[in-house]
Amino acid sequence: MKDYFFLIPVALALGAIALGAFMWSLRSGQYDDLAGAAERILFENRDGPDDTTSAHADKPPHGN
């Protein structure tokens, strides 16, 4: 029975920490653009190089 008097405050403290972390993430804008990440995967990435195969064109394949 003494263990419960120790575990209940620990559980409440962990719950309060989790609630605080969730409230911090809400205030910092983590959930502002929920549709953007879902739509971003459907479109081509235009931030990287245009052709990645040309960088390795002059190197012979492995095994030769």
Rank of each mutant, 00 (worst) to 15 (best):
A55D: 06
G20V: 04
F6Y: 08
M1P: 08
D47S: 15
K59D: 05
A16L: 15
A35F: 12
L7I: 11
L12D: 03
A38N: 08
D32K: 09
G36I: 12
D3C: 08
D51H: 01
N64A: 15
R46D: 08
G36W: 08
L34C: 05
G29Q: 03
T52C: 09
K2T: 11
E39C: 04
P9R: 05
L12Q: 11
A55L: 11
R40M: 04
P49R: 02
I41D: 06
V10Y: 12
F22Y: 15
A38T: 02
E39H: 06
L19E: 09
F5N: 10
M1T: 08
G20M: 06
P61T: 06
K2R: 12
L19I: 14
Y4I: 10
P49W: 00
Y31T: 05
H56W: 05
H62E: 15
F43R: 11
H62I: 15
Y31F: 14
A37H: 14
S28E: 10
P49N: 07
D50I: 10
L42S: 11
W24I: 05
D3P: 01
L19H: 12
V10H: 05
A18C: 12
P61W: 09
D47W: 02
P61D: 11
V10R: 10
S28P: 00
I17T: 10
G48F: 02
V10E: 14
F5H: 01
A21T: 12
F6N: 08
F5M: 07
L14S: 03
R27L: 05
L42F: 04
R40I: 03
T52E: 12
A37Y: 15
F43P: 00
D47I: 02
G29S: 01
G63M: 04
V10L: 13
F22R: 08
Y4H: 04
L7H: 04
S25F: 06
D50A: 13
A38K: 02
P9T: 09
R40K: 14
R27I: 02
T52S: 10
G36K: 11
L14R: 06
N64F: 12
D32M: 03
F22M: 13
L19R: 02
G36P: 00
A18I: 11
H62F: 15
S28H: 06
G36S: 14
A21P: 00
T53C: 00
D3I: 07
F43W: 07
A38E: 12
A18W: 06
G20Q: 05
L12A: 11
A13Y: 14
A16N: 06
D58E: 05
K2C: 04
P9K: 08
